[in-house]
C-alpha cells in the first residue's frame, strides 16, 4: 500500500508538467457480434506510442466497472472484454484522472429483433 502510494506520487509529477498530445491508442473500438441479442466478445489493445512509455499506476474500467489495475501501466495492454451493450472504456489513475476514454460500439451481423408475428395493416 505504501509502495503504491509512492508510485502514485511519482506518477503524479508528469501529469502536471506534461502538455504533449495524447499518445494512447485503443483498438478495436467496434465489436462485431453475431446477432443483436448476443454478447459481443473482443480483445482490446491499449497501446502507448510515445517513448518512453508512461510509468504510472492506472486501472482499466469498462462502463465504470474496474477490470484490471497496474502499479505501472504497461506500454501495451491487451484485455478480453464481453460487451452486452455499447459502452465506454476508460483508463484512470487512482486519483480519478482519466488518461483514456473511448466509446466502444457494437455492430451486429444479423438483426434478431423480434419480427412481428402478424402482418402489418391487418387491423381491417
Amino acid at each position: 500500500m505504501q509502495r503504491f502510494g509512492v508510485i502514485v506520487m511519482l506518477g503524479w509529477l508528469p501529469y502536471t508538467s506534461a502538455a504533449a498530445a495524447l499518445h494512447w491508442s485503443v483498438a478495436p473500438q467496434i465489436c462485431v457480434a453475431d446477432t443483436t441479442h448476443s454478447t459481443c466478445n473482443m480483445t482490446i489493445t491499449i497501446e502507448h506510442h510515445s517513448n518512453p512509455p508512461a510509468a504510472i499506476p492506472a486501472c482499466v474500467l469498462i462502463n465504470g466497472k474496474q477490470r484490471q489495475c497496474w502499479a505501472r501501466l504497461p506500454a501495451r495492454v491487451t484485455l478480453d472484454v464481453a460487451l452486452e451493450a455499447a459502452g465506454r472504456l476508460t483508463v484512470s489513475t487512482p486519483d480519478g484522472r482519466e488518461l483514456i476514454s473511448k466509446v466502444l460500439q457494437i455492430k451486429a451481423r444479423r438483426d434478431t429483433h423480434r419480427p412481428r408475428v402478424r402482418s402489418p395493416w391487418r387491423l381491417f
Partner: peptide, 21 residues
C-alpha cells in the same frame, strides 16, 4: 526513473454512443 506520460487530459472520444436498436 523515466516517468513521462504524455498526459494532456483525458482522450475524450466525441463519437456518440451507438446502441443497437
Amino acid at each position: 526513473m523515466a516517468v513521462a506520460a504524455c498526459y494532456a487530459g483525458a482522450a475524450e472520444d466525441s463519437a456518440s454512443y451507438s446502441q443497437p436498436t
